[in-house]
Amino acid sequence: MLGMPLRRRLRLLVATVTAALLALLATGTASAIQPGGITDEARLMNDLFWIVTIAGLIVFGLVGAALVYAMIRYRRQNDELPPQFHGGGKIEAAMVGVPVLIVIGLFTISMIILVQIDDKAEDEALTIDVTGFQFSWQFAYNLNDLGTNTDPNAEGTIAVIGTPANDPILYMPVDEPVEFLLKSNDVIHSFYVKDFLYKLDLIPGRVNSFTVTARETGDFSAQCAELCGTNHALMRFIVRVVERDEFDAWVAAEAARQLGDGALVSASGTQGD
């Protein structure tokens, strides 16, 4: 390569670098084609992600191509001065107009999706109280608010508490809306489940909430996403999405363990539908 004339060497350089970049980009997008989340909400967000990605790739592709083309086509050949234009009204108007259109389009779509995500009947949702603390989580279930199948007579709450060394498991049923109430008493944490494609902060002094409907069962790893001190990295947890009867069985077992036999009776009533 060193023996070549400078110009060819440069052209080779530009070409290699562009190729390398495109390859990187391709791997990047390819690896992003992953199961688009496990909740209804996540699927909406995943759609939006792809819309933005396509718009972004088009912009990048066009601008990048123009850049590379200009660099090759207009490289210096001789000492002649090129025409000295300073810009023109029409092109400059297009420079503003086209991006404005793209931007308004993307904004509109993202707002439509935002509204759809927020638009959930939260009344019949199962509610889980999530409390973040330095450095783990507590998930509390109110026995008389276990969602559509709640036995209204069950009393008390059951809770799962983790430690940095022992990731807590958050049980939730599949195919029904689940509402999370997020609280913190020390510093800000963030409830982040990658497969929900969603996170929301736990902020001292306020309660945040969101609702999702999971569509897949399984274990999904999750963790705190807001720097909260020394062991922030260890504030992990597992979301275990299970079928309703499995969920009820787990609730019954936990209730028996945590609240004693009395609770077991009424809690196991939740299975009797």
Binding site: A42, L44, M45, L48, F49, V52, T53, G56, V59, F60, V63, G64, L67, L106, F107, I109, S110, M111, I113, L114, I117, S190, Y192, K194, L197, Y198, K199, L200, A225, E226
Partner: peptide, 24 residues
């Protein structure tokens, strides 16, 4: 070229629901 990429990936976060996933 690189700022272009940085601007475009900033735009992802402007799409609010996408930022729910990407933030932090």
């Amino acid at each position: 070229s690189m700022f272009l990429i940085g601007g475009i990936n900033g735009t992802y976060s402007a799409a609010v629901p996408v930022d729910f996933a990407l933030h932090d």
